[in-house]
Design a binder for these strands. Structure first.
Ligand SMILES: NC(=O)c1ccc[n+]([C@@H]2O[C@H](COP(=O)([O-])OP(=O)(O)OC[C@H]3O[C@@H](n4cnc5c(N)ncnc54)[C@H](O)[C@@H]3O)[C@@H](O)[C@H]2O)c1
Ligand SMILES: NC(=O)c1ccc[n+]([C@@H]2O[C@H](COP(=O)([O-])OP(=O)(O)OC[C@H]3O[C@@H](n4cnc5c(N)ncnc54)[C@H](O)[C@@H]3O)[C@@H](O)[C@H]2O)c1
Lengths: 208, 208
DNA sequence: CTACGATTGTTATGCTATTCACATTTTCCC
DNA sequence: GGGAAAATGTGAATAGCATAACAATCGTAG
């Protein structure tokens, strides 16, 4: 195929996993891999990997497999992480700080470019190489920096209000760490990080 | 139905989301809700919620809906979070500290009960009300405390080795924050938290 | 130069998940 | 007390996804 035509969202969700594995293979200086090997590493069937990739083009060679570096670049391009996205973090508590200090985003296409908090005591404080800004500078600063993505790290009770302000400021992708589902207009994307939910998923299978 | 018989894993994965929403409704002192209202809040169809719940029993009343408190307790029971699970955190860096300080686990059925790190400089340090322990106490301490769940917050290069040690110590549920897929034996459950992967999922849909 | 093993991309098949639709039950209001 | 409105639980229908399977292709060894 190679042309889009509404590619299943679940397929898009697996591409970052493939990318992650390919990144490690590059570190290991592996030059070629196969759908079978990738599948083994990820616990996914080789057929699924080939099928997923076939939505976007033909990246492999029969008999040989995939050139690791080439496939890596292709998926980076598909996911649009072949350039760096600046992001805002709202809420500079324990979690917001850990995120702001985290060095791992850079290699995956992201950079924390602005920090916001409502607490006057935090304003002006430096975290990493950034200064914590007040919420009333949110719109101006995100627009100035071309920020389209934000991470929400405020208490659950505040998360919807913060999301609304971010969306008003032009942010269209939200990664929400607060344990609450957000209501957002069409065209705004939301993803959730809820460790307690993952834990509860696993306890179902544990014997008490 | 009400009897098990292999309930789809994807259904189990949604129960914590329902629980989260019901918890908020309890805070809001709502006494009854409906599949329709829950669905609205969560962006899920009402039919799906009814079907999911029907795997476990009949919790609602026609014409009335669901008693919020009752449904909450039922799902807590199904997920086995009607009692508290002690957990270990391995890796007391920025992220491990944020996790250790996090107050939100308690209400969802979990408690950080032990911290481990390989760095001799951190050993004995107090984080929250816990002391950082060396890795060679991992097996003894998890067993002493009855820990069956661990969160991995070490660098990716160390994560597989840490997972192996945890599994050897009898831990059977892992929440992995390191951006790498883990190989684990049958019977061990793994969930992943990878914010960069979520972000990459969203950038696919953003215009560059 | 040929034959074989490896591996892809894709089509066909089967399975799983979601939605639809409705009989049934409950509440509430006149 | 009766009828309308609201809501559940579920079987049937639809849609979506994953797996199996294979022809086509490539590299290599003899
Ligand atoms: N710490 C963790 O490990 C962890 C894990 C999972 C989820 N979470 C969730 O992440 C969120 C933050 O957690 P935390 O531990 O960092 O909490 P925290 O209380 O340490 O920090 C919250 C920060 O948000 C700021 N804030 C509050 N209201 C705001 C508003 N309206 N606008 C802007 N800023 C505002 C506060 O001033 C504070 O600095 C919470 O929703 C929590 O449930 C945290
Ligand atoms: N900080 C974040 O916001 C963030 C976000 C997402 C993912 N992560 C991931 O979480 C992990 C931890 O991140 P961090 O920022 O806290 O890193 P960090 O370097 O601050 O902390 C890592 C800790 O792990 C310890 N450690 C290293 N090897 C160990 C071993 N073999 N056994 C036990 N302990 C060991 C180190 O001593 C250190 O204290 C990384 O894999 C990172 O990619 C972090």
């Amino acid at each position: 195929m190679g042309t889009r035509a509404s590619i299943p969202d679940i397929v898009i969700g697996r591409l970052p996993i493939y990318l992650r594995a390919l990144g490690r293979m590059i570190q290991e200086e592996r030059e070629y891999t196969s759908s079978h090997e990738l599948g083994e590493r990820l616990g996914i069937s080789s057929a699924q990997i080939r099928k997923d990739l076939s939505h976007f083009g033909e990246f492999g060679k029969q008999g040989t497999g995939y050139n690791v570096q080439y496939l890596y670049e292709q998926i980076r391009h598909i996911l649009k992480v072949d350039h760096e996205w600046p992001m805002a973090v709202v809420g500079v508590g324990d979690l917001g700080r850990a995120i702001a200090h985290y060095r791992g985003f850079q290699a995956r296409g992201f950079r924390v470019a602005a920090l916001f908090d409502a607490d006057p005591k935090l304003l002006g404080e430096r975290v990493g190489n950034l200064t914590v800004l007040p919420m009333d500078q949110l719109a101006a600063e995100t627009q100035r920096l071309g920020i389209r993505i934000a991470m929400i790290a405020v208490p659950a009770a505040e998360a919807q209000a913060v999301a609304d302000r971010l969306i008003e400021a032009g942010v269209t992708a939200l990664l929400n760490y607060a344990p609450i589902s957000l209501a957002v207009p069409e065209g705004v994307h939301v993803q959730y990080i809820d460790p307690a939910a993952h834990l509860q998923h696993m306890t179902f299978y544990l014997t008490p």
